[in-house]
Amino acid sequence: MQDLVLNAQWFLAEATTHAAEAGGEHGGGHGGHATLSFMGLMIYTFAIAGLIMILMAFAKKGLKDRVFKGRLLQYFEQLHGFVENLCVGIIGGHGRKYMPMIYTLWLMIFVSNLVALAFPSSPTADLSFNLGIALLAIGYVQWEGMKANGVFGHWKHFAGPKLPIALIPITLMIFVIELISEVMKNVSLSLRLFGNIDGGHQAATAMNELGKESNLFLVKYLPFGAFLMPIKMLTCVVQALIFCLLFCVYLSLVTHHDHDDHADHAHGEEGGANAHPATT
């Protein structure tokens, strides 16, 4: 009975509807916060992907019109422009190549974050999921770097500036440090997302304990954690943005110095009107 009350309170804290499909979740886990089982994570992920695809299927109807009339399609178009600004602004003229990838990542992370607001768990509140997308992102950055600079050129890039032959130990050290920093990029990308989303959950849970000692029924079961909702909503947007932003920055670091300095200027003013995106 006590468990039931606690669970109900926790659900309330997440402001919420009951997670019907969260069957894969095995609660408890370590240190009080729930982690998803393999099937649970897959169910969540495919549910979110399915949701996105259903929205897209609705939005696709208006695609043939001369002017986009559907509200949903207009949102998607806005997002398209936003992602385009992000890519072109940070990476440069050839950044459009990466748009589908960044668009997908943005949508998945953002919707997962929104799900984390209302459901007891979410893909992005799971470190394994975040490590997966971080590995994918950094791996893709390495792949693009090798494609842009050649395999040897890309590895040489890790070794830092050209030093005289006597200083080879330093070059080796720089190489090792750069390798570690590449690994740390994974860790930082995944841990940041995980920490923010899961931290939000834990903060809500911890705040729900506040009224525990009270004798008043209202205070005892008041979901204090729900008051964190606004800042959690902000976190949703910002974390999705930062993931995509950093992905773009890493991509631009490995690809930008070869061909198109002139291409960015053509798009310099595009981002000016928009609030978020960056222009260089």
């Binding site: 940070i90 910002v238 981002g271 000016g272 928009n274 978020h276 960056a278 222009t279 260089t280």
Partner: peptide
């Protein structure tokens, strides 16, 4: 627009 990205 230019400041926001580095800030974030």
């Amino acid at each position: 627009g230019k400041l926001q990205t580095p800030m974030l």
